[in-house]
Design a protein around this nucleic acid. Structure first.
Lengths: 172, 172
DNA sequence: ACCTGAACACCGTTCAAGT
DNA sequence: ACCTGAACACCGTTCAAGT
């Protein structure tokens, strides 16, 4: 049976997990699939297309919180899911800063945040701006934690600032 | 006269500015200096050492605010300087997430932030944690803005969240 | 439609050798 | 001490060809 885009991404993700982002090459992925490098181009475009596929898979790993939870717990759970993702894939995570946040795979987490903010009583016109601010906040912390910008014993205080922002949300 | 580490970094920085981070290779830098690739190793170690040097130069570009300004203006100026840096060097900026924040070159900005927080009345034992939280916040926003994670017409609301955090700082 | 083979223009790094 | 030259084991991508 012919190769599929999904096969290629499976192989890429396995390679990333085992040997890191630096080990991802068209040739290495192809060899894992028992195929010529050129066979990949039909399915994922070029190497940038391959990386886009990896980001897509990454975003789908973020667990969406149960809608029954209070809005504040849902936002906290989303943030925790993103930070856990960064710790599982520290070397791939920075890719999220260079790719648009509007890809189909990113919509799940974004819409969950929208719904929580709506329920928190945030004005409809403010929700998108606020979601952008919050997601940027979480991404920045997750990347710093996972990239080891600070030593293990000197982590940045994410919870402190999350509480601060969410408290302010309640009082407005 | 012999090549120096500084010469190598000058050439690398020029290359980054003209052709982007992807164009930086040992061979390209060497050719710019009219020298064999292997001549670089004595001065900057390996390629990672070259990138560390680039980060070092980047950090030195952050303007330190005048100590006469009120603490709040100093923090705002530092943040603005970092965001401007990200816009000047969007493709190099993400390197800051993967390198330790404690290199000598990073100390200037860090100490300026410490001094401002001290003047704001933050307890001495809380200053390092708070500085880590704030710098992570700024870095995350700067990277998102510069990387184009959002469209140009839909920027994340940095000023909103900065005001929020600094206001809270005053009331504690 | 889907894949291969050969080729082009690149990489980082080692190692021995030159001055 | 400082640099060169040749070599090794890699890259991404194009292009023509095979089935």
């Amino acid at each position: 049976m012919p190769l599929t885009r999904s096969d290629v991404l499976d192989a890429t993700f396995a390679l990333v997990s085992e040997e890191g982002l630096a080990a991802v090459s068209m040739r290495a992925v192809a060899s894992r699939l028992g195929v010529t490098p050129m066979a990949l181009y039909r399915h994922i475009g070029d190497k940038q297309g391959l990386l886009d596929g990896v980001v897509e898979r990454l975003l789908l790993e973020i667990p969406l919180p149960s809608p029954e939870l209070p809005w504040r717990d849902r936002l906290h759970a989303l943030a925790a899911g993103i930070r856990a993702l960064a710790h599982r894939h520290p070397d791939v995570f920075p890719l999220l800063f260079q790719r648009p946040a509007t890809t189909p795979a990113a919509l799940g987490a974004r819409d969950a945040a929208y719904a929580a903010l709506r329920e928190a009583g945030v004005a409809e016109g403010t929700i998108p701006r606020l979601e952008r601010a919050l997601s940027t906040l979480v991404l920045g912390f997750a990347a710093s934690e996972a990239g080891g910008r600070f030593g293990a014993e000197a982590v940045a205080d994410y919870d402190w600032i999350e509480t601060l922002v969410l408290d302010r949300l309640v009082n407005t």
